[in-house]
């Protein structure tokens, strides 16, 4: 069996999130090698164009999975011009996801920056399904501006299960906003936590994750209970192509979710 061999998946539905971000529902049937866990990813590709790693943004449901994709690279730009019914070739799931088991019985803090909310969305789905398994659940979400917020229509439903706080970096001149303004770290500073019993899952630009983790550590959080999702260039997803190597670790296999402990202080990283 060739682990690099992808299977066909058709686009069932497309939701426009923001300017260049869309959420795709792919019908995969039994093409995936396992039930994808939150935080894992697929290699999604188009023949003649290439492949790119993309996190799951939803749990498997009726043979379909979700990916939220920002059209920025060769492959994602190509997918960004596809329509419902078009087919991609994908393979996965790969990597180590969010350690939900460790969060059971604890308070769970989700910290998301920009499109970094996408890989946390399946975690939220899990919480909705099993709310009683967790203590207090908080979602802090920051984006550059209001137009860049993902999953707008779902916030209301989420709020029955978790406490949601949104901040935007900047406002259009003269505009009023229903959200607070400022960086997500300011939001964190204002948030009261029981640091002793908090597990945090953080996903966003690496500089945001660094500052967010630092803020949490100052609040007394335990570094081994802070988890970050790293983004690296990947070609294979199976610890062979070497692109995602980070201090001897393969982000594709050993991550992409790591505890802050595991990756802080590494050369070529910001954590």
């Amino acid at each position: 069996m060739n682990a690099l061999k992808p299977s066909k998946a058709a686009i069932k539905n497309i939701t426009h999130e923001t300017g260049d971000v869309r959420t795709y529902e792919f019908y995969v049937g039994d093409a995936l090698s396992a039930d994808p866990a939150p935080g894992q990813f697929n290699m999604i590709g188009c023949p003649g164009v290439g492949e790119a790693p993309v996190s799951f943004s939803g749990l498997l449901k009726d043979g379909s999975i979700r990916h939220t994709i920002k059209a920025v690279g060769m492959v994602t730009d190509f997918i960004g011009r596809m329509e419902t019914g078009d087919e991609v070739f994908l393979r996965g799931p790969y990597g180590r996801g969010w350690p939900l088991e460790q969060a059971r019985g604890m308070d769970l803090l989700l910290g998301a920056g920009g499109v970094g909310l996408a890989p946390l969305r399946p975690v939220i789905e899990k919480i909705v399904r099993e709310r009683d398994a967790f203590g207090r659940v908080l979602l802090l979400y920051g984006a550059r501006d209001e137009r860049r917020l993902l999953f707008l229509k779902e916030y209301e439903a989420w709020q029955d299960f978790l406490s949601l706080h949104i901040t935007v970096d900047e406002l259009a001149a003269g505009a009023a906003s229903k959200y607070s303004t400022g960086l997500i770290t300011t939001l964190l500073d204002r948030t009261e936590l029981n640091a002793e019993r908090t597990v945090a899952f953080i996903c966003g630009p690496e500089i945001m994750m660094r500052l967010f983790c630092r803020g949490l550590l100052l609040k007394g959080a335990n570094a081994s209970r802070l988890y970050v999702l790293l983004e690296r260039r990947m070609r294979c997803g199976i610890a062979q192509c070497g692109h995602c190597q980070h201090g001897g670790l393969f982000v594709c296999r050993d991550g992409p979710v790591f505890s802050y402990n595991e990756v802080s202080g590494f050369a070529d990283g910001l954590l």
């Binding site: 188009c46 003649g48 164009v49 290439g50 690279g73 060769m74 730009d77 190509f78 011009r81």
Partner: peptide, 11 residues
Amino acid sequence: LTSALFRKKPD
């Protein structure tokens, strides 16, 4: 040339 035909970004 193939990128233009295939409507993809060239590499």
